[in-house]
Structure formats: C-alpha cells, structure tokens
Design a protein around this nucleic acid. Structure first.
Length: 853
RNA sequence: GCGAAGGUGGCGGAAUUGGCAGACGCGCUGGCCUUAGGAGCCAGUGCCGCAAGGCGUGCGGGUUCGAGUCCCGCCCUUCGCACCA
C-alpha cells in the first residue's frame, strides 16, 4: 500500500469527544438567531439500542449537522421515557429495582450515542422517572384537575389481568393489550380520566394546518371519528324517554324497533317481569364477552326483547325495545333506532328475529323496494317516501330538512358525536408518577398542594408485580385541607402522560419554580421537525396535542400545536429464524437453515428487529468490524428514511467499500495537493474539467435539496458516490487540474460530513483546513455551473430513442435550433429516409420527438 | 367491509414537474493482482436474440408525439380502523 490505510477505530476515537468539548450541539435558548427545534422521539431505555433504533437518531444527527452548517441555532435535545411496565417487568425478572435497571440502561445508551458520533446537549437531558421531572407531571395533573379536565368516575374499563392494570382505549389494539397481547377484561372501577373529548373538535380541525404525513392525519381523524346527525327522543309506553343518536334522521319513519346496549341504564326499568331472567342472562353474557368477540363484525347478531315498547315519534306507532350487544354503551347515547330497510346491521338483526322492515327511501330511477324481497339494506341515496309531511324530499336535503322538522316539533336536535373517549390515566402499578390526590373522609377528594410536590414514589425493595396499594403505609397521610387522617390515591399515571409534555421541558430543563418558562417555549415551539416511529401515530401524538391545547387554554403556552412537521421513519427489518421445536433462534443457532439443537429445518422471515424474535443486530458488533461511519452511511443509504428497510450483511460491506475508496481517494491525493490553494479557474477547463465541475455543482444542489422537504438521504448519498466515482476517474487521467481536485475533494468532504462525520473531520484536517467542519458553512452551488455548457438531448422517432445529440446549452434551450439540429443529424437523416415527417416536438433542454409515417 | 400506502432487474432501491426506465449499491460473470481470497483493481450485467432488432415498470383498457408517472376497470401485498348507529 502506498499510503496509510483506513482505520476507523483510530479516527473515530480521535474525534468522538471533540464535538462535545467544542459544544457544537449546545444552544443558547434565550437568544436564537435562526431557531430550529429538531426533535427525535425520546427512547424508552429498555436495555440497549440496536441498529434499528440507531436509524432514528442517525437520521436526526445527519439533519442537525446539516442545519448547523447552514447557520441555524438548533435545539436538539435527548431524554428518556423512563417510566412504565417493561422496566418494572424486567426489574422483577432480575430481582432489582426498576430505577436501578432504568438508570443503568440510560448510562449504557448514552455510550452508544457517543459511539455513533451522535451528540446532544446533555445538559438538557430529561428523565421522566426522576422526581425533578415527575413533580411537574403531577403539576400538570393538578392544573387539569383544577380546570375540570381531570375527573374521577366509576366506569367499565379495560383491565389487563396479565399486566395487572387498566388500559386506555388507545392501548387496546385489535382487542388485545398493546403490551402483552392478553385480551382485557371489563371491570367496573373508579378511575381518573383526562377530558380529551372536550378537545375533539379542535384536535380534528387543527390537523389541517400540520405538515404531517397524510396517513397519520387520517389515522387521527378516524380515531377522533366525528359524525354529524341528530339525537331523537322516543317516549316509551311506560313514560320513560329513550334518546338515540342517528346519522340518518331522514329514515326515522322507517324505524321499526329500538335497540339498547345491554349496559344502558334504562334496561332495568324497561324489562317486563316475564322477560327479566332472559334479559339478565343476556346482560351477564355480554359483560363477560371480551372486546374482540363483541367487536367482530362477522359475528351472528344476538339480542333479547325487553317486553316494552316505545312510540315512533313521527308515526306514533308502538315499536318493540330490544337489547343487543352490537350497540355500544359508550358511543352516542348507547341506544339506537333501528331502520332495517336502510341499515345493514339493523337489517340483519330484523331478519334474525323476524322484526318488521319498512322502506322509506326510494332509490333514484330504481324499482320500488319490496321489504320481503330485499336481500340487503338499501343504504344509498334516494327520495324520502312514506314519511308523512316530508315524503318526496330529495336525498340532497333530506337530512337537513328532517332535523329542522324534528327541532320544530321538539322531538330532536342536530348533534355531533365523536368516537374519541376520555383518556383513562390511572394505572395500578408502581413504576409511574403517583397521582397527587388525597381522599379525606371529611373533605372528600383533595388535590395535593403544588408546594408539596412531588409526591414521591415510596422507596421499597422491589419484589414483584405490585401497585402502590400493596405497599404498607404508602396510602396513609394527612389531609392537606383539614389535617385529619386521609389516604393517598394509590394509582400512578399512564406513562403517556409523561411523554405528553416532555418537549416543553427540554427548553427549560432546569427551571425549579415552573415546569417550563413560557417565554422560552413560545420562542422555540412548535417543534420544527419531529421524527419518530409511526407506531405513535395515535397514542402519543394525540395526547401531546391535547395537552398542548389544554396548556394553551390555561395560559401556559402561546401555541396550540406542539409539532409543526412530523416525519415518520420506517423500521429496520432483519432475517428471523424459527425452529418448529425451539421457537425463535439467534443466527448463530442456525446452520445451513437447520436448527443446531435439533437439526430441523427452520423457517426464515423478515421482521422489525426485536429481542423477542432474536433478530437484532448490535451496533457494537458493527462498529467493531466497520466503524460507526460505515454503520451510519449504510443505515441512511439502504432505503428512503420513511420506509421499512431490510438490514443485510452484504449491504453494509458496500458502505464499507465506499468509505475505504473515499479515504484512498483523498489520502492518495494529499501529496499532490500540498500547497495548492484557491478556487479553480473555469476559463482554463478542458472537457473533462468542465464535466467534473458541473457534476460537483449538481451534486451540491442535489444533496442540499434532499435535506429539505423530501429527506431522501439515500439518494443524496448515491449522488455523492457518483461524484466520488467521477472524481476518482478524473485524478487517474492525464494532467489533472489540482485546484479543481482540491475543490471537488474538499466540498465532497463537507457534503459527506453529516453522514460520516468522523471520516469527514479527519480528512478535512488532513487536507490542511484550519476550521472544524461544524464551523464551516455548507457548500453553495452555482446554478449556471449546474446547467453546464453542453447537454445531451435524446431524439425519439415514433416514441423510441434512436440517437442522442450533444449540443451547446444555448442551442438545446432554443426550440428552433434544437429542431434543426435533430433533423440534420446524420443518423436521424438516415432513419428518416423513405418516411414522411408529420410532426416534430422539440422540448427545450429535454428531447426531440419526431413523428413519421 | 372502510381508509391509506405500495407492486419497477436475481436483490435493496433510482427516475422530484407527463420527456433517455433501471441512477447508486448488493449479487453475479469474466479478467488482472495474489502462495491464497469472504481483500483490492478493471470490464460486463433488465429480458429474448449470433446479430439487426424486438420486448419490458402487477393485469386489462384509455388519453398523449411521448405514460413507471395521468384517467377507467381489475389483481396482489402491507399497514391502520373495523357492528361507531
């Protein structure tokens, strides 16, 4: 080897602490000139970060380095979402305290960041499980409580018997506990809720202004689930009033029965004695049925008749009242009017139980519907028929006219309902922020005074699944109001409360009197770019938006949305092996696709990296073999950041080879470049120089633009590779222009520096540059140089490219000259012989298309 | 069922505005170098064909001088929601 070969370990060790010592990633939040709040979703400290986690932070570090070079004041903090069940469960397994486990993981992860070359302002570190943070989570609870946004109620809630705690609706995914997959049970419990439903309309409306991926907005929209319709009152024969919600009030004349949810409060009163046994039996069965069973749309419809009737308010006809579990107790009023002719579910139910079907909507131009012949409900548009005074109303105005009529008659009114329900935040586990509430026999529910915060987690040896209620003495306290004996609330808050405001704390992490300094957060928020996994599309992002709006209304912040732009990065997948007998296997337990324990053939598949599937790749191994720069480069190169990608052992070698080639290119040129300074002089360029010069400027443009809207970092890297390939070919050629070589190499180092910061800093210094890269402005490009002075223009004949012309840029941009050049080109002439030219389309700078016969 | 995203070589993926399909990388093939190669370098590599040429972006139609890109109708994959009245 004629020069020093690339040794990532020496290089990376040299620069690792340089950035920290120089404080490049610190920011003065009080005096930003061009502020940019970049935020990665903070991690859950679960043990270690694998290369899949790394992707999130590597994307962020590259963007932040770019922004710094562009002269922004970047707030780029990092912290730990440190409370929660997994730490508790891991601690139980290991027989240690969740705090010790968590803090050890944090220390380990910080070293991993350092190894990756990812720097943060660690003076802003926020750890949600420490009292100086959760004190303010409790403060948040108190503020919501004082303003009627936190309340306690007894309700049927989802309880996970395995995790031994209740769950929010958002944490029941597909009828299973989000954490452990156990189907939750319904339990009647006294629990704390946050009144997120009070913000349903604004959470929905404000989505419009967010620069978020459409699918994430759509998911939130669906989750909030706004429906417009009417509430209609039905008088029962026994005098009770049943209110139903419907989106189709125009079908009211076709309502032939009512259905209540089994849990509906009027069921008892409406059940006649001879039906009581059957109704009670059905209610008990419905209570036991898990959420999955009950929500399955394919399930047979079941229900029972209460024996009572109500009067259809517009026809005066008595109609039977049933109960059925296809009606949800918590949506709308928990009761529906059934219009079997025009609603699929009601139709199925009516057919199953022989209930009458009455057609009140006539399809346009269609045959008159015959209730006996219908195989399915007609839910399409049509004219109202058999609907008393409203008969003949066309579809377009039917709903609005019916609502007006109902309001006139005093039977009902326009109503908007949401699927969104209040956020259940009580958890019966230890590792969370205690709810700062005291129960006193004399004073009732008493909030802990702000000055008494934090309510500390009790210091106990940690022995097993437990809540604060299991810890002797924890609940005993005195009432803050009367000083008498009282009991503490023994629940902790959902960890999503912790993460619903952490982005505010980062701005003023050391404030002791307040959770954050309003003036400062107003200067820095909303977050300019928030990057994280799409799995938080609903839970975290909806909660954080809600809390921000609540804090806004209470006067603590001046903005209503926390995250202006959201980017969701894809997951890193990797081969996973499964043995029919031994389950998931580590790659080292597989030989020639057979299990090393039993010799059976293993199944291979691709999954997002996870410990449970034993398919994680450890950054330490990769860094040991190739260095952090190679891992970073490969991570960003292997696919667009918003898509899932597949980690491959071969792929990383490609990145490794590039890093080596680049090193060899620059280090190989160093002896020639000593003493070479100044910008190259384009007037002295030959064709090879002009081509390279153009490529350089085009590459600067490309890379710069990819850091904008698209974040196509994979193609930015590809562009740099192209430039490197051309530069390598150029320096091998005859008599290279050394000023040009220096210009190309030094700018290429800058372009590469967000991706491979160690390598870039090292080569930059070896090139003799005095300033560090992060003190150097990002390279500029000259649009004229990008355009170049000669272009290649393809010529199509009947839609096929037949030849390419090399033309001066000015000729290519003039349609007439372009047309002329194409038609006179010898090989075009050749092809046109014997044909009649019908049409010539010359697109300046692009191509010429000739149509012949 | 509803909604969203996607389907391009052997593979990961490019093609940003209707204008050269397959950039860049992996893999593969051949060669060089080497005691050796899971190192490095050079060349080739969408498919069919000796070639000229033809065919090619899930399938079928359409618009256009020109379609991966736009329109209509399907198929498949992934994700989200799912008896929400």
């Amino acid at each position: 080897m004629k020069h020093e070969s690339y040794d990532p370990h020496t290089i990376e060790e040299r620069w690792r602490d340089f950035w920290r010592e120089r404080g490049y990633f610190r920011v003065d939040t009080a005096h930003p000139k061009r502020k940019f709040y970049y935020l990665n979703m903070f991690p859950y400290p679960s043990g270690y970060l694998h290369v899949g986690h790394g992707r999130n932070y590597i994307i962020g570090d590259a963007i932040v380095r770019f922004l710094l070079m562009r002269g922004h004041d970047v707030l780029n903090p990092m912290g730990w979402d440190a409370f929660g069940l997994p730490a508790e469960n891991a601690a139980i397994e290991r027989g240690i305290h969740p705090r010790d486990w968590t803090l050890a993981n944090i220390a380990y992860a910080k070293n991993q960041f350092r190894a990756w070359g990812i720097e943060y302002d660690w003076e802003r570190e926020v750890t949600t499980c420490l009292p100086d943070y959760y004190r303010w989570t409790q403060w948040l609870f108190l503020k919501l409580y004082e303003n009627g946004l936190a309340y306690k109620k007894r309700a049927a809630v989802n309880y996970c018997p395995n995790c031994k705690t209740v769950l929010a609706n958002e944490q029941v995914v597909g009828g299973e506990c989000e954490r452990c997959g156990t189907p939750p049970e319904q339990r009647e419990l006294d629990q704390w809720f946050f009144r997120i439903t009070a913000y349903a309309d604004r959470l929905l409306a404000d989505l419009a202004d967010l620069a978020w991926p459409d699918h994430v907005k759509k998911m939130q929209e669906n989750w909030i689930g706004r429906s417009e319709g009417a509430t209609i009152a039905f008088r029962c024969e026994g005098g009770e009033e049943i209110r139903v919600f419907t989106t189709r009030p125009d079908t009211l004349w076709g309502a032939t029965f009512l259905v209540l949810a089994p849990e509906h409060p009027l069921v008892d009163a409406l059940t006649v004695p001879e039906r009581r046994a059957e109704v009670e039996g059905y209610r008990r069965a419905a209570g036991r049925a898990s959420e999955i069973e009950r929500l399955s749309a394919e399930r047979e419809k079941t229900g029972v008749f209460t024996g009572s009737r109500a009067l259809n308010p517009v026809t005066g006809e008595p109609i039977p009242i049933w109960i059925a579990d296809y009606v949800m107790p918590t949506y709308g009023t928990g009761a529906i009017m059934a219009v079997p002719a025009h609603d699929e579910r009601d139709f199925t139910f009516a057919r199953a139980f022989g209930l009458p079907i009455r057609v009140v909507i006539a399809p346009p131009d269609g045959p008159v519907l015959d209730p006996h012949a219908m195989g399915t409900a007609y839910t399409g548009p049509g004219t109202m028929v058999r609907s008393g005074p409203l008969s003949g109303t066309p579809a377009a105005t039917a709903i609005a006219r019916t609502i007006a009529y109902l309001e006139e008659q005093g039977i009902g009114e326009r109503t908007v309902v949401y699927k969104l329900r209040d956020w259940l935040i009580s958890r019966q586990r230890y590792w969370g922020a205690p709810i700062p509430i005291v129960y006193c026999d004399r004073c009732g529910v008493v909030p802990v005074p702000e000055e008494d915060l934090p309510v500390l987690l009790p210091e106990v040896p940690f022995i097993g699944k437990m809540g604060l209620a299991d810890i002797p003495g924890y609940a005993d306290t005195v009432c803050p109001r009367c000083g008498g004996e009282a009991r503490r609330d023994t629940d902790t808050m959902d960890t999503f409360v912790d993460s619903s405001w952490y982005f505010l704390r980062f701005v003023s992490p050391h404030a002791e009197e307040v959770p954050f300094v309003t003036e400062d957060v107003n200067r820095w928020l909303p977050v300019d770019l928030y990057v994280g996994g799409v799995e938080h599309a609903i839970l975290h992002l909806l909660y954080a938006r809600f809390i921000t709006k609540a804090l806004h209304d209470l006067g603590y912040v001046g903005f209503t949305e926390p995250f202006r732009r959201l980017f969701t990065q894809g997951m890193v997948c990797h081969t996973a092996y499964k043995c029919p007998q031994h389950g998931w296997l580590y790659p080292k337990e597989v030989d020639d696709l057979r299990c090393t324990k039993c010799g059976q053939e293993v199944a291979t598949s691709y999954f997002a990296m996870s410990k449970s599937k034993k398919n994680v790749v450890e950054p330490a191994d990769i860094i040991q073999r190739y260095g952090a720069d190679t891992e970073r480069l490969y991570t960003l190169f292997m696919g667009p950041p918003d898509r899932d990608i597949e980690w491959s052992e071969e792929g990383i070698r490609g990145a490794w080879r590039f890093v080596n080639r680049f090193w060899n290119l620059v280090v190989g040129q160093l002896p020639h470049l000593a003493g070479i300074a100044g910008e190259p002089d384009p007037s002295r360029f030959g064709p090879a120089e002009r081509a390279l010069w153009q490529k350089l400027h085009a590459t600067v443009k490309k890379v710069t633009e990819e850091f904008g809207e698209r974040l196509g970092l994979n193609t930015a890297i590809a562009a740099i590779m192209e430039l490197a390939n051309e530069a390598a070919a150029y320096v091998e050629g005859p008599g290279p222009d050394l000023q040009l070589v220096r210009a190309v190499l030094s700018r290429m180092i800058l372009l590469l520096s967000p991706f491979t910061p160690f390598l870039a800093e090292e080569l930059w210094q070896r090139l003799g540059e005095e300033r560090a890269i992060l003190d150097t402005p990002w390279p500029e490009y000259d649009p004229r140089a990008v355009a170049g002075d000669e272009v290649e223009v393809p010529v199509q004949i009947n839609g096929k490219v037949r030849t390419r012309l090399r033309l001066a840029a000015h000729a290519a941009s003039d349609p007439d000259a372009l047309r002329e050049a194409a038609l006179t080109a010898p090989d075009v002439q050749e092809r046109l012989r014997g044909h009649e030219v019908q049409r010539v389309i010359a697109v300046p700078g692009k191509l010429v298309s000739i149509v012949v016969r």
